[in-house]
Computed example of a mutant assay.
Amino acid sequence: MALTYFGKLYRALNPVYAREPMSGRGAELYGGRFNPKGVPALYASTSVLTALREANQVGNLQPTTLVCYRAEIEMVFDTRDTSALAAAGFDETALADPTWRDQTTTTGEARTQRLARQLIAEGYNGLLVRSFAKGAGPGDTNLVLWRWGRGASSRLTLIDDEDRLGPAKPS
């Protein structure tokens, strides 16, 4: 069953992408746990601290640009719904599998990336999932978006009232 996410979201961006906080370009170029290379995705968190953990999972804290969005996203798959997750052939252990990068090397696509492709094909705009970053707890949550912008069903607006990042670029 799909849910609608309404609230703020946070991202801790590599400064290389700071001027394009709506692009999802890094995830598209390199792939992620829930998107294969070539599929744009925007990984956001429901709290600032979770966003910082997600962006700095390896080694020391690196330079980071923190941004905030207002979101109203329909058709979100909620992985916290264990029955819906099981119906998709998953459980939390499979979502958290740390070998997802190795799977992309051996099979071309991680199992979690296949789940994302399936959900995208079913019309989902995103996936609500627990953070698996070091130090994250059960309440640390991410929203991975595959569709976002100004549309009514996947509205995402960057909060930059003082135009600190310069003119907004369309998504």
Results as ranks from 00 to 15, higher is better:
A2K: 14
A2L: 09
A2D: 12
L3A: 04
F6V: 13
F6G: 02
G7H: 10
G7R: 11
G7W: 10
Y10G: 00
Y10H: 13
N14T: 08
V16K: 13
Y17D: 04
Y17L: 02
A18E: 15
A18C: 02
A18V: 10
R19E: 12
S23P: 12
S23C: 07
G24R: 13
G26I: 13
G26C: 02
L29Q: 14
Y30S: 04
G32M: 09
R33G: 00
R33W: 09
R33A: 01
P36Q: 05
P36E: 07
K37G: 00
G38W: 10
G38V: 09
V39P: 01
V39D: 09
P40I: 05
P40N: 08
A41K: 06
A41W: 05
L42W: 10
L42D: 13
Y43H: 08
Y43P: 05
Y43F: 06
A44L: 12
T46D: 06
S47P: 04
V48D: 03
V48P: 01
L49E: 15
T50N: 03
T50Q: 09
A51H: 11
A51G: 03
A51F: 02
L52G: 01
L52Q: 08
R53N: 05
E54N: 04
Q57F: 00
Q57W: 06
N60V: 14
P63N: 07
T64Y: 11
Y69W: 06
Y69P: 05
R70G: 02
V76A: 03
F77K: 12
D78S: 07
T79A: 15
R80E: 11
D81T: 04
D81P: 01
A84V: 05
A84Q: 15
A84N: 15
A86Y: 08
A87C: 03
G89R: 09
F90H: 07
E92S: 03
E92G: 00
A94K: 15
A94T: 14
L95M: 12
A96W: 11
A96Q: 14
P98M: 04
R101L: 11
R101T: 09
D102S: 08
Q103G: 00
Q103N: 03
T104P: 00
T105H: 07
T105A: 07
T106Q: 05
T106L: 03
T107R: 11
G108M: 03
G108N: 13
G108E: 07
A110C: 02
T112C: 05
R114G: 00
Q118V: 07
E122G: 00
G123M: 10
Y124I: 11
N125V: 09
G126K: 11
L127P: 01
R130Q: 14
R130H: 02
S131D: 05
S131T: 06
S131N: 11
S131K: 10
F132C: 02
F132P: 00
G135D: 13
A136P: 05
A136E: 10
G139M: 09
G139E: 15
T141Y: 10
L143K: 13
W146N: 06
R147P: 00
W148D: 08
G149W: 01
A152G: 03
A152R: 15
I159S: 02
E162F: 06
R164F: 02
A168V: 14
P170T: 12
S171Q: 14
S171G: 05
